[in-house]
Nucleic acid binder design. Structure first.
Length: 861
RNA sequence: GCCACUGUGGCGGAAUUGGUAGACGCGAUGGAUUCAAAAUCCAUUUGAGGCAACUCAGUGUCGGUUCGAGUCCGACCAGUGGUACCA
């Protein structure tokens, strides 16, 4: 081999990135009449550095964007920044750096890093959610929602840190304590801002059916999250002799299982149910219990996992259908005020939670639905025949439900109700680094809540704030906070809450179509591209972010901003990037701190033995992170992209392995060396008829692989696409290595093969593909070439290989002519003559022969 | 706790609708090349038995449906994501 220029990824990559930029090749251009295609990856939070998860999702999106361009689409492929959020405030607290400065620096860093990956974005559309034009647009939308009764102010629980005097996020509550102060967290009610998402609950469920290209997984999760249930609100009369409060004489419960009413043995109230609150001051045990409940925190997980406890209120209610039966009333920590009526009737035999509770305090367990097992520790929660239930006996659960509902409605003690698990979206945060809620709170009761007038928008954050004091810095900023009421002119205060960052991300896809426009959305531009054709992001956003975006688009449609209600025609959720973990004698180690010797691993600094843990999601805390920059530095972006796309299916977790990266790099280097040394003679016209036998067969293989690879691209199986592309290269390498031996026409077919190969590889490793394309002597850039088509007529193989099974187990195969695949008798008699089949059948008569034409022959003996 | 998903060689994974399990790659082993090494190339590589033809077992575990199950059903085990204020 002659000395040649080695593969230098960095030089090539920088060169082509400049060329793409100079020609502005990835500008979203909807002018010509080709179809438009909007591909969007979830925009990143600017944490400072890109991580492998980013490399993965943006590589996926870029492959799709480049593929769609090759298929002749005009592609909108933008990038921006989900720039508000808590980490910026934590950085301000810890490092005394202003959140705005910290965020801007991070964005600048990450932009440079993303550009080094060779991603084909239209960077002219870039924006950050903390940019004043975006804030202005969002505030306008919010005020429109407010004026149309889709946003409102109401009290809601928050995690309160009594030492820091601040609201904590759920992740800042660790085992019920504040993460910094260590104080026991309390629940506290604060006035907050809500969006009326429940107005759309039915439509959000019912429209899932029309989202044909969403995965069933995501749709099921959304459906369960909204949690529509048909049930009944049923009244239980309180025994007034025991009731001190005159106003309250009944308890309304919600249940989806009225068929089990005769199995009820208690009533349980939420700790913040009006009756519970009423009893708070009457009894020390009760107030103690309620206080204890309020120390659990606000997360559903914490509430559900806490030990099921209750306290007897000593109140009793009458059973609605058995006047002689009284049920005790408890306050229980597992009943949620936010669901149903905040009160339930407990049926221990047929609800696990109720059974656990009843067993604990020795309440009766009465079986009212027939089941095979005796109920001791495991409740039977399914439907069945009703027993022990007076007039319901013998009915099915469905019939019994109907009967109870009818009867209750007739007696005027109950009403059929549709209930949702979904509750309205609490969208305000008591923090500085977010989009301000553009509201003024006037002291005059006549005014109250006053929207900031349109001409005063945007309401921007004050810059001169300090994070030394406890609480929300906006609350301490008197100059910013104190204003006069726009309506009456009297002293008033700004709303000091800011929006949840989910608000920012609920409508950002629309903004990319006109990021600098003075109004929120420029309709004509938006309509050219929206909705997003393909959205790509982590499965962790499958519920909240997607649901909030779906809600926002519905609301925006009702407010006439847009004319469609589903933001994403297709959603693809990719898996996480994982890596092995390493543990030294004193804690976690970074991969670069260890070395391998045989099967064992040691620490570089002192040769201490290292324990290797299984692969887990890359995280700073476990130090199992690989810095994408160091990979790009060492191997190049193409290698990083190839590796991250080749080994795992995009929707599954990916194991980062050093050897895998090395393998990807070796492949690119092998390609490079091959192309550098191969003679690409002046191309002749590609001939497709009267080819030599060898040329025809090669072409058949090449086209078969073009077909398979194209299908892989269409169905998002890029790992399989890589496998097939490599298969194609193996065939072509092989031909080139024996170049003095092949028949006529073969060189032309090899060239056709390599060209198709490069075009199909280009979306994955765009830089080296451009370079090799040029080395081949081609004009123009590969990123503007059209995708190769395949010749269907040559794919048809004349023969089929059919498996032969005995009792369903493979014993041999038979090759048959495609045109004769249905000729049962002839094929079976041939099969019976095959050596090992004959031997097996020698003293046996087949009981049955399964013959599926073109598929399988199964002889049952 | 609840909802959803995942489980296939030493490793990552492949297997359009139930019909030839292990494509493609990594690693490993052997060989070629080299003074030597790196790089490269060739071969082997699910396990057990056999000189071989071949036989048997095998897709987290246990059971079921079927002529036939990685694929469908049930129970279980393990891991992951979400759980409404991380993004």
């Amino acid at each position: 081999m002659t000395m040649q220029e080695p593969y230098n990824a960095k030089t090539i990559e920088v060169k082509w990135q400049k060329k793409w930029q100079n020609k502005n090749l990835f500008k979203a251009n909807s002018e010509n009449k080709n179809k438009n295609y909007y591909v969007l990856e979830m925009f990143p939070y600017p944490s400072g550095k890109i991580h492998m998860g980013h490399v993965r999702v943006y590589s996926l999106g870029d492959v799709l964007a480049r593929y769609k361009r090759a298929k002749g689409y005009n592609v909108l492929h933008p990038m921006g920044w989900d720039a508000f959020g808590m980490p910026a405030e934590n950085a301000a607290f810890e490092n005394k750096i202003h959140p705005a400065t910290w965020t801007k620096n991070n964005i600048d860093n990450m932009r440079t890093q993303l550009k080094a990956m060779g991603l084909s974005y239209d960077w002219e559309l870039e924006f950050a959610t903390c940019d004043p034009p975006y804030i202005k647009a969002q505030q306008k939308i919010f005020l429109d929602l407010y004026k149309n009764n889709l946003a409102y102010r109401q009290e809601a629980w928050a995690n309160w840190d009594p030492i820091e005097q601040t609201v904590l996020a759920n992740e800042q509550v660790i085992n019920g304590k504040g993460w910094r102060s260590g104080a026991t967290v309390q629940r506290k009610k604060l006035p907050q801002w809500f969006f009326r998402i429940t107005k759309y609950a039915d439509d959000l469920i019912d429209s899932l059916g029309q989202l044909e290209n969403w995965s069933e997984q995501v749709k099921t999760m959304q459906k369960n999250w909204i949690g529509r249930s048909e049930g009944i609100k049923l009244e239980f009369q309180l025994d007034k002799s025991l009731c001190k409060s005159a106003e309250i004489d009944k308890i309304e419960v919600y249940t989806t299982r009225p068929d089990t009413i005769f199995g009820a043995s208690f009533i349980a109230l939420a700790p913040d149910h009006p009756i519970s609150r009423n009893l708070y001051y009457s009894n020390k045990d009760i107030s103690g219990f309620i206080d204890e409940c309020n120390e659990v925190g606000t997360s559903e997980e914490a509430i559900e996992k806490v030990e099921k406890k209750g306290i007897d209120t000593k109140l009793k209610v009458y059973h609605p259908f058995l006047p002689s039966v009284y049920l005790p009333v408890y306050i229980a920590n597992f009943v949620l005020m936010s669901y149903g009526t905040g009160a339930i009737f407990g049926v221990p035999a047929h609800d696990q939670r109720d059974l656990d509770f009843a067993n604990k305090i020795n309440l009766p367990v009465k079986v009212v639905v027939e089941s095979d097992n005796k109920i001791t520790n495991k409740a039977y929660t399914g439907p069945g025949k009703i027993i022990n239930s007076e007039f319901l006996n013998g009915l099915s659960s469905t019939e019994a439900k109907k009967k109870i509902i009818e009867l209750s409605e007739k007696l005027n003690i109950g009403k059929m109700t549709t209930q949702y698990r979904l509750h309205d979206w609490c969208a305000s945060r008591q923090r500085y680094w977010g989009c301000p809620v553009p509201i003024i709170l006037c002291e005059s009761p006549k005014c109250g809540i006053i929207p900031v007038p349109d001409k005063e928008l945007p309401v921007l954050l004050p810059q001169d704030v300090s994070f030394d004091k406890i609480g929300n810095p906006l609350d301490h900023h008197m100059k910013w906070k104190n204003v006069s009421c726009p309506k009456c002119g009297k002293p008033a205060k700004r709303e000091t809450q800011t929006f949840d960052t989910f608000v920012d991300s609920a409508w950002y896809p629309l903004r990319y179509t006109s990021p600098k426009y003075d109004e929120p959305i420029e309709k004509a531009e938006m309509e050219k591209w929206c909705p997003v054709q393909q959205y790509i992001g982590g499965i962790e956003h499958a519920i909240l972010h997607l649901l909030y975006a779906r809600f926002f688009h519905r609301a925006l449609k009702d407010l006439n901003y847009i004319n469609f209600k589903e933001p994403f025609s297709n959603v693809f959720c990719q898996g996480m990037v994982c890596h092995k973990t390493y543990q030294g004698p004193d804690g976690w180690l970074y991969p670069e701190e260890i070395y391998r010797k045989g099967n064992k691993i040691f620490r570089i600094s002192d040769n201490a033995p290292v324990k290797v843990g299984r692969s887990e999601k890359m995280s700073k805390s476990k130090k199992n992170i690989i810095d994408p920059l160091s990979i790009i530095e060492q191997y190049g972006a193409d290698t990083a992209r190839l590796f991250i796309l080749s080994d795992s299916p995009p929707d599954r977790d990916l194991d980062w392995s050093e050897s895998g990266v090395d393998g990807a790099w070796k492949f690119l280097r092998r390609l490079w060396n091959h192309f550098k040394q191969k003679e690409f003679s002046v191309k002749k016209e590609l001939k497709t008829i009267n080819l030599s036998q060898e040329a025809f067969m090669l072409r058949q293989e090449v086209h078969q692989l073009i077909k398979l690879t194209s299908e892989n691209y269409e169905s998002f199986r890029f790992n399989s696409a890589v496998a097939n592309i490599r298969k194609l290269s193996n065939i072509l390498f092989d031909k080139d290595n024996y170049s003095n031996k092949y028949e006529k026409d073969v060189p032309e077919i090899i060239t056709e093969g390599w060209e198709s190969f490069l075009i199909m590889l280009a979306p994955i490793t765009p830089h080296i593909a451009e370079e090799l394309w040029k080395i081949m002597g081609n004009k123009g850039m590969i990123c503007s070439k059209l995708w190769p088509s395949y010749d269907k007529s040559i794919l048809k193989l004349d023969s089929l290989i059919i498996p032969i099974q005995i009792n369903g187990k493979l014993k041999n195969t038979i090759s048959i002519n495609k045109s004769e695949k249905g000729d049962k008798e002839a094929i079976i008699s041939k099969v019976k003559e095959i050596e090992n089949i004959k031997r097996i059948l020698v003293d046996k008569t087949p009981k049955k022969i399964i013959f599926i034409p073109g598929k399988v022959i199964n002889i049952v003996i």
